[in-house]
């Protein structure tokens, strides 16, 4: 464990807290992509299958349960709970996620760390997480302006993987046999997708944290 990874996990937890607060207190899922939340639920449920046999630390196991529970709760609330479900707009949030899931599944089958079913599913979840934010970014692009809490949610989510990148660099230089090309590649792509958002987020928040983010 190192500070970058710890801050990355805290930033990830913060993104869940912000989103759960927004949809439960704000009673609205406007501006939030259900498609992205469904992808995250698939990512965590598939990646953390090893919860039952790969016990590397209590910290890991606890957060795996938290991430599966939170992502499932978010999908449930936006899909089934009133009044949130009425604030989700399927016409706007219509990114074809099958074009993300399909290629990631093929990539997971072909490029993984070991030829066991779990490793293929694990690699699939890593690739899928890298592109899971796309429906959300497309929704924000369509709306042009990003509501305040949503912008903090996306920023925390981007920061989490950005901090993980620093964690991988740190581990690469401090540990001798540390090699994780799959997560390095996917994590770089994932963080790269946020660059544009971060630029607009920084520009808008310079004048005050509660200003909405404007996307071109």
């Amino acid at each position: 464990m190192n500070i970058f990874r710890f801050l990355g996990d805290m930033s990830h937890i913060l993104s869940f807290v912000i989103l759960l607060l927004k949809i439960t207190q704000g009673k609205s899922a406007a501006g939030i992509s259900l498609r992205t939340q469904e992808l995250y639920m698939i990512v965590f449920c598939s990646r953390y299958l090893d919860l039952f046999w790969n016990f590397s630390s209590l910290y890991n196991s606890f957060l795996k349960v938290v991430f599966i529970a939170c992502s499932s709760a978010i999908v449930y609330i936006i899909r089934f709970k009133s009044p949130q479900k009425d604030t989700w707009n399927p016409e706007l949030d219509n990114f074809p996620i099958q074009y993300l899931i399909g290629p990631c599944a093929v990539a997971g089958l072909l490029i993984n760390q070991d030829w066991t079913p779990f490793e293929m599913i694990w690699a699939f979840s890593i690739y899928l997480e890298a592109v899971a934010i796309l429906p959300q970014l497309f929704l924000l692009q369509k709306q042009g302006e990003v509501e305040n809490l949503t912008s903090h949610y996306v920023a925390a989510l981007g920061a989490y993987r950005g901090l993980y990148l620093m964690n991988w660099v740190y581990r690469y230089f401090t540990e001798d046999d540390y090699l994780q090309r799959i997560v390095w590649f996917a994590g770089t792509v994932q963080t790269g997708l946020y660059i544009d958002f971060f630029y607009h987020y920084y520009q808008s928040k310079r004048g005050g944290l509660s200003r909405p983010v404007k996307l071109p």
């Binding site: 890991n60 991430f67 070991d114 779990f118």
Partner: peptide, 10 residues
Amino acid sequence: CTALESKDEL
């Protein structure tokens, strides 16, 4: 170490 043991991150 095996691929499984190397999975110590979330």
